[in-house]
Design a protein around this nucleic acid. Structure first.
Lengths: 212, 212
DNA sequence: TAAAAATAATAGTAATACTATTAATAAACA
DNA sequence: TGTTTATTAATAGTATTACTATTATTTTTA
């Protein structure tokens, strides 16, 4: 019943790794709608059919890449939370992490370019669940990495504010808004108080939402 | 320089009105990605080429419909704000409006089905700006209705909390989250504290964000 | 080394996203 | 009123997309 996001694990072969690496670059360059397996294949001098041996379609590929991102963020967050004794600091760490995933103190090994994955999630992340397949994808646990991170943050919020009634909603709001306020600051500045490329501005806003 | 969202105003002809009405239904049924002008044309027994005489492409058509929604909401909000003396009540009215746009007290004439437009914005709204054309679209004022509503709400927040530093970010957050928390409650319930189809739950959360 | 298995490329197809051209209809005006 | 003009709609295309079935090649392993 439970399906994987790939037909064949792209990390197992050289071609597979080229496919995912170049797909990330190409989607970031031209956008997910304009991205096709044909263009990807031309870029790495293979064929469309070979790409199809790894991924059923481009939506699955997008979810695979987005999940690489959230899994990485979750792992870094989880690792840090184990050693940090104060809930307040744990929350601050997670917020800093989702705003600046490439900072030195956040580094844990991944084969992917974290900044590129951040860009991908910023632009294309919502498209993973804004589809009529959302229920089927959810059953297959395709959103597990994001949901686990959100629940981790919700638990920390609950520890910090035990009487607070909306920890899950607040956690997902913080995760979504970290990206969206950044996006607004770049492209729709009248929708935000954050200055262009000032994650600290977004941080201040998120902290205000947390009453911290 | 400034472009319109349509090539020919669909409200001016019977065929145009059929096109927009059926497009709204069809996108809501099958989703924007699966929606094509061909399918639309078959549905109203016209031809693809005729639809192209009204809209340059389906993305423009989506923006046209989404803007019908935000324009309507803005008008209702604006109208009510003129007569309501208390800023707190004006904010509450706007929040109720975006959560329940079809309530009797919100009714103002539109030729569109407001519930259908709400569904459309819930599922497809973000896709209007998550595109590489965002700057060009923004220059053409394609996001004006949403931005004006957000600024209206930001002004009311500023009146209510004159020292508050993030009124624009908070306004856009409330508008986005009203929809997203509802979506989560329906399809990804672990990301929210709101129960399925309980706009009051979302309302309580948004009020908490406002400290009201 | 030969057979089996895994991988990749070739060569398609149906559907999509348009466009150029022609036909039909309605409006303007002489 | 009849003719011209402008508007609107339909026909018939094309290049691209999103796949799939089949064949060829390479790698593994018995």
């Amino acid at each position: 019943m439970l399906k994987r996001l790939y037909l064949k694990n792209p990390q197992d072969t050289l071609l597979g790794r080229q496919i995912t690496t170049k797909a990330l670059q190409l989607i970031n360059t031209i956008g997910f709608e304009a991205f096709t397996f044909k263009k990807l294949a031309l870029n790495i001098k293979t064929t469309e059919a070979s790409v199809y041996r790894y991924f059923e379609n481009k939506h699955h590929m997008l979810l695979y890449l987005v999940n690489q991102y959230w899994t990485h963020i979750y792992n870094v967050a989880q690792y840090h939370c184990q050693t940090e004794p104060k809930a307040k600091n744990r929350i601050q760490f997670i917020l800093k992490l989702i705003l600046n995933p490439e900072l030195p103190e956040h580094k844990i090994h991944t084969s992917f370019d974290i900044n590129a994955l951040y860009q991908l999630v910023l632009w294309e992340g919502s498209k993973t669940y804004l589809t009529r397949n959302v229920n089927q994808f959810n059953k297959n646990l395709f959103f597990k990495p994001f949901k686990e991170l959100s629940l981790l943050l919700a638990r920390e919020i609950k520890i910090f504010h035990p009487t607070y009634k909306f920890s899950k909603s607040l956690a997902s709001t913080l995760l979504e808004m970290a990206h969206l306020q950044h996006f607004y600051s770049l492209y729709l500045p009248s929708l935000t108080d954050a200055k262009k490329n000032q994650p600290r501005d977004v941080m201040r806003f998120l902290n205000q939402l947390l009453n911290m």
